[in-house]
Design a protein around this nucleic acid. Structure first.
Lengths: 339, 339
DNA sequence: TTTATCTACGTAAACGTTTCCAGCACACAG
DNA sequence: CTGTGTGCTGGAAACGTTTACGTAGATAAA
């Protein structure tokens, strides 16, 4: 494509390719004089090193992969912001792959990535129904550096960046109980991931420590289809008229809950109260303002990328002990106001 | 890293590297027998070709770059969804770069990308104050395939995917006028891009064709800092108490308008009406529900990626005539209701 | 003087592919 | 028997870097 390469520079300068290469890397083995000559010409001809040749030779790509369920979700888009920020600072490129919470897509993608295309990987596991994580095991065996964030597959001995999901689940549920709820549904998408289990345990513990009984039929699994979710919630609301609280474990389910309530004419917070995990910037502007558990998404992205890039640069393995747990924050708003 | 390469396969099979390579590509020059032997072993050893070696040799990277202002914005995240979708279908990888609407970052990034790292580029130009587009010119000269989407730099003779911005600006403004507004502010971020100019012209034309005079001081430029924008709008509202309509040319400014109105106690839509470009899924759930002009973001992404990949695959240049204009839709909601 | 050290550069191998150019064996036509 | 094709395979060059190694000349140490 662009025929400006080391060979061309070397010819024009009557130097060897080796010297030109070294000059551009500020090697001490090259005299100041030649360095300047080389750099001047390189700048003039707008020389850009061929990334692939360099990656091939050095076995280092200066590229990280980010594998996430979706990007149209404030949590993940904020996380990407954080990731891109630190990657750019350190001269890394960011490849994005979306799984749409589909197991097979995730397997395909991770399969791709065993080929050395990336130096490291940030992964937030798909919340599919499948219990099969062999693709992640395979990926791990091909040993790129991996850091999980938010949605972790715990069996791999690597680091992860998560939030205090158990406490958050507990807090959200207690908040509803204290607002007067007695029949609280729990909506989630990632029941078979640790994140889902933790939030669930928090929910359950809060119920039980307040003398409420845990009812399995009030736990509903959604997916990534908003209409289907809204329908699911509508059905639930109809079948269980005693329901007076909803704890949505993920943003889209909180939104669907609003939609279902609007459709059925259930007033929030009078008839039913809603709290949801969400990074929606406009939560406070909703009708009514949505009480949220908000994760520090941007910081999670930064933190995960930092751990990953540090390990790559120092060529050290990533240990589970480097894991970080950040705290989410509960923002009480109208949707859970008393009376 | 992973030492499973063609050489290893060749050794184990007592074949030459050339034959193994050809077998894996289903070349007709290899007997069925050997093909199967090769593929079996490759699968068994989990062979993944080295992407960099391949890219180097073929001068093709199967990677496209996406350069956008931000990802934490529904328009762009939906667009990325569309882009990733078609890229994945065709076996392409997607590199993401965020400019944060900063001219210098954009210049840095495009500089990077002249190095042949990507086969093509999808670009939505940063809405900075700068009038300097020499970095884009330079990028173009290094001839990767480029398709602009939404925010176009018109001077480059390549294709773009946009929406009917003039009509949308006209429609939004007329909608406000018909709802009774007489003093309408226009908030925008991209005054020096064609997209900004088009929307502005639509705004102006609607005013004038309805006997209202265009007032330059009602046109306000925001940036990517939400607090600053809210402050800006608050100031405007205070200084111009006669204001009864806001046309926000970009999602974040509509949100900031809500915040400013809430803070000042101006009731929407009674005191002031708001319409905004937005892909916010929860627009209908806002308080009050926000009237939006919604761009077909997902389709824009798909369309842009399709044009780009077709050109790359066929090795044809991209012509301005391949440009596509899609239609946005006005969704009237409470925020512009009469009375 | 010789020997060691240092500076500044060149030669060439290597990274893992792809692909051009053979070559060989065999078949078949003239 | 010669020529021509065809089916399969291997050797080796090439892509653009980086880098181990070598070397020539200069300077310093012995």
């Amino acid at each position: 494509m662009n025929p400006v390469n080391l060979k061309l520079l070397a010819q024009k300068l009557n130097l060897s390719i080796a010297t030109v290469s070294r000059a551009l890397q500020d090697s001490h083995e090259v005299s100041m004089q030649t360095k300047e000559r080389v750099k001047a010409l390189a700048a003039e001809l707008n020389y850009q090193p061929n990334a692939y040749a360099s990656s091939l030779r050095r076995n280092v790509s200066k590229t990280i992969g980010v594998v996430i369920p979706e990007v149209n979700n404030h949590f993940f888009s904020l996380a990407i912001n954080g990731i891109e920020e630190v990657a750019r600072q350190q001269g890394y490129h960011v490849l994005i792959y979306l799984t749409h919470d589909d197991h097979d897509r995730e397997a395909d993608i991770t399969q791709y990535l065993t080929g050395g295309r990336v130096d490291g990987l940030l992964l937030s596991v798909a919340a599919s129904a499948s219990q099969d994580f062999s693709h992640l095991q395979k990926l791990y065996d091909s040993k790129p550096a991996i850091v999980f964030f938010d949605r972790v597959y715990e069996e791999l001995p690597t680091a992860s960046v998560t939030t205090n999901d158990y406490e958050s689940g507990y807090l959200a549920t207690r908040h509803l109980i204290e607002a007067g709820c007695r029949h609280i549904a729990h909506l989630l998408v990632s029941g078979n991931l640790s994140i889902g289990r933790m939030r669930m345990q928090g929910y359950r513990a809060a119920l039980e420590s307040h003398g409420l009984t845990f009812d399995e039929t009030l736990v509903v699994n959604g997916n990534d289809n908003d209409e289907a979710n809204t329908q699911l919630i509508t059905d639930l609301l109809r079948q269980r008229p005693e329901l007076d609280g909803i704890f949505a474990s993920v943003e889209r389910l909180a939104i669907s809950s609003y939609q279902a309530c609007h459709a059925l004419g259930r007033a929030i917070p009078t008839d039913i109260k809603v709290v949801g995990f969400s990074n929606l910037g406009v939560a406070a502007l909703l009708n009514p303002a949505l009480t949220t558990i908000t994760q520090p998404a941007y910081e999670i992205g930064r933190e995960a990328a930092t751990i990953l890039l540090r390990a790559i640069e120092k060529k050290l393995p990533i240990l589970p002990s480097q894991s970080v747990v950040l705290n989410s924050t509960l923002f009480p708003r109208r949707s859970t106001a008393r009376g």
